[in-house]
Nucleic acid binder design. Structure first.
Lengths: 207, 207
DNA sequence: TTTAACTTGTGAATCAATTCACAAGCCTTT
DNA sequence: AAAGGCTTGTGAATTGATTCACAAGTTAAA
């Protein structure tokens, strides 16, 4: 299969969100133009994005809302449960642990890990906090699919190396660090400082 | 000035991070190739990124670390203080309020706002939580530069419209919603669900 | 001085993403 | 059954980003 651009996947994700709204309101069909308006893009872009995966629409009519939603869930791999562990039981870890969007989309948080003995044994928004020491063992046993990193920047690469060695293939990183991973491991980084500096740049360089 | 791509600005931000490490270690110069390796890109990319803003290096030698760091701070608009308010004093708001990276880079959090009377009057990690009702008045008086949105998705657009009307030109959005704003308003959205679905896609569509 | 080893800055070339534009298909009305 | 109004799917064209490749400048050593 041809390599799909990251930007395309993000848009598919957005389309699915809109489709779910329409599903809830029982609207039967939607056109590429409607999806485009909602997503701030163009109808050609919407059709091109979908065309990488097949042709799901009816000329003259548009797309069946439930059918397209189903297809997108399939494409995005949302038909199954993904098991997630959070490493770092700080404020960000806590915020993520209570985030409903996780569960809603089939992401189950198994546990959080921390090295702080104060936190271990307690729960974080109902999720057990375990000792980081048992991480490797637990990965063997529970086979999580995704690791969310909310550790300090200095530790992020070390933890990443460790979970990659244990077989993890997908990482969502909130640590402010540039991480390096093998090509077969998907890493997404959310870097607040970078976003803020993007805004600072935009405010500074206005024509 | 020619339009600078978002990806370029993000890389500049990354380069600055590396330069600060080198500054701390008092290394006097650095080459585009070293920066590239750290940032997971190529030396040509580094030089091209910088070339949009001038020529800061010395052939045969590389870049003076403190000079280039200074230039990048200038380009990114980090020479001044940016005033930030957080709207939504929930878990994510709390996580952001305590995030040290903010202050470190000259972003001062003035206040958090919430509609929940329970929270108003208290503090969030040392930051006062104010009634959302006084937001417009406070924006007039304190003139914040950046608004961070951590409200529920359904409310995000309404709050955005409101702060835009009050004159805000930069918004960092954590609500899972597609926001629409006038062209002269910079909006950056951090959408956890989208990142997770990106990982789900990557795990699903592995060749 | 001359030479060798580096490294920048930048047009040109390539690669990638987006937009255009239109034939082809579907539905409704007459 | 024909016409009119929509809307898709997709090659082609365009626009944008990245990579190539090399002249030109710098330093250090001989």
């Amino acid at each position: 299969m041809k390599r799909i651009a990251d930007s395309t996947v993000r848009r598919l994700s957005a389309y699915l969100r809109f489709l779910e709204d329409f599903e809830a309101r029982a609207q039967p069909t939607i056109s590429s133009d409607e999806l485009a308006k909602l997503g701030g893009t163009t109808s050609a872009q919407v059709r091109k994005d979908l065309s990488f995966f097949g042709s799901f629409g009816k000329r003259g009519l548009g797309y069946s809302v439930p059918e397209l939603a189903g297809r997108l869930r399939e494409i995005l791999g949302l038909g199954r449960e993904w098991k997630v562990v959070i490493i770092g039981a700080g404020k960000i870890g806590a915020a993520l642990a209570q985030y409903r969007g996780f569960r809603q989309r089939g992401f189950t948080i198994l546990a959080a890990y921390d090295s702080n003995r104060e936190k271990v044994g307690k729960t974080l928004e109902g999720i057990p906090v375990r000792d980081i020491e048992q991480l490797d063992r637990d990965i063997q046993r529970e086979k999580p699919d995704i690791v969310v990193l909310t550790v300090p920047g200095e530790e992020a690469q070390r933890v990443l190396d460790r979970v990659v060695r244990a077989g993890i293939k997908a990482i969502l990183n909130f640590a402010p660090a540039q991480l390096h991973a093998p090509a077969d491991v998907a890493v997404k980084t959310v870097n607040m400082a970078m976003e803020l500096e993007g805004l600072s740049f935009a405010l500074t360089n206005r024509e």
